[in-house]
Design a protein around this nucleic acid. Sequence first.
RNA 1: UCCUCGGUAGCUCAAAGGAAGAGCACCUGACUGUUAAUCAGGUUGUUGCAGGUUCGAGUCCUGCCCGAGGAGCCA
Length: 430
Amino acid sequence: MDWVYIEDISKFIDKEVEIRGWLFNKRSGGGIKFLLIRDGTGIIQGVATENGTEPESFSLIDELNQEGSIIVKGKVREDSRAPAGYELAIHSIQVVHNQEGYPLTPKHHGVDFLLQNRHLWIRSKKQWTVLRIRAEIIKGAEDYLWERGFLKMDAPIFTPSACEGTTTLFEVDYFGEPVYLSQSGQLYNEATCMAFGKVYCFGPTFRAEKSKTRRHLTEFWMLEPEMAYAHLDDAIKLAEGMVDYVVHRVLDKRKREFETLERDTTHLESIRAPFPCIRYEEAVKRVNELGKSMEFGEDFGAPEETALAESFDSPFMVTHFPQGVKAFYMRKEPGDTGATLSFDLLAPEGYGEIIGGGEREFSVEKLKDEIKKRDLPKDAFGWYLDLRKYGSVPHSGFGLGIERMVAWICGIKHIRQTIPFPRMLGRVYP
RNA sequence: UCCUCGGUAGCUCAAAGGAAGAGCACCUGACUGUUAAUCAGGUUGUUGCAGGUUCGAGUCCUGCCCGAGGAGCCA
């Protein structure tokens, strides 16, 4: 008898199969018992009857508890009364492990309780679904880059100093020396892209900001491509092309998951690159027209960003931010406008900034000036300045926040549900 | 760091100064097509911690702890 996975069950109609999984829920109707069995790839309803099931297995069902691990043998059949259209006529059940008292009952629970039980919560339908979509989003984004000749070059997590200087860092004792957990792979990407042309890194990044909102984690995953000999326009094209590709691929490959989430995907389906693109000055003007007040030179606050995003029905870009709101390595716009060759890509529906990027400063003198102006520790940037001393070229790239992307695509309000184990202010368990 | 809200049974919540309750989970029983199954019965308490006011505090006051939403900052 073949051990099969539930996601493949439609290929085994009228066949005898074995499913190895866990009891998701059960209902009993006297002489007939319904088991919802999950195996990590899906959920199927198993039906046990007095006539069709071994007597020992049949009576054993009464003692089975939620999330007990079981190996079930039976025959697959189509039945419109079953939740997924297929069900398993159970012949026998082998109990691998059974224990009562599973904390997460199929009822409502509070946020704190669920987060304390995150290691179990990820078994529940909605969390499981979101994390499957997350995996597909990551694979899609990486495939998109590989198909375009990008190589994955991992950036270090221990770093000697800040990439952007302004945000708070987690300090770690490194054999007596202070080092910091990476807040971006950006600077290292610039080195690897001068060696390999087109690269990306994908890893966790850490921000010790005391942010307590639905858009923030202290540990989140960022996908950062970087291209040598590329300008702002090239980075923008890559970013919007990637978002377009990933959205449609996920809609195509994870249709069933979106049905489970009851996510209305009509606006996602209509997304087509290129996206609307406005300069920072225009965005500020627009925000003020929308009734939020905002000065030129400021970055967008959350309410301003949301108002702006609501005036578009697709993802859109804001370009040429002033120097003050962007990192020291962002290249200045030629012609002394005070703007940088930068862009943010914002998701609609109030999900905010999911991509930030631009063209990097490649003149060693201008970069030195900027480091001095911002009072950054210049010794730590020696190697970085070397990149401009030896074979410096224009180069561009961006960083994509995976969790915000997942939240937007899944229509999830809080980013904590878009990563298996969220790290937040005051929460590092489990 | 600041603002707002909250902490009562394993879970979700009610009890507006006067006998601590309900639903779910769990246990017992009924039911051969259930969809968070349903129905009947049963078990479940240091009301976050410390102090105060009062004849009497889950309820009012003070301090602390923990959590949630938001701001700033950011992806």
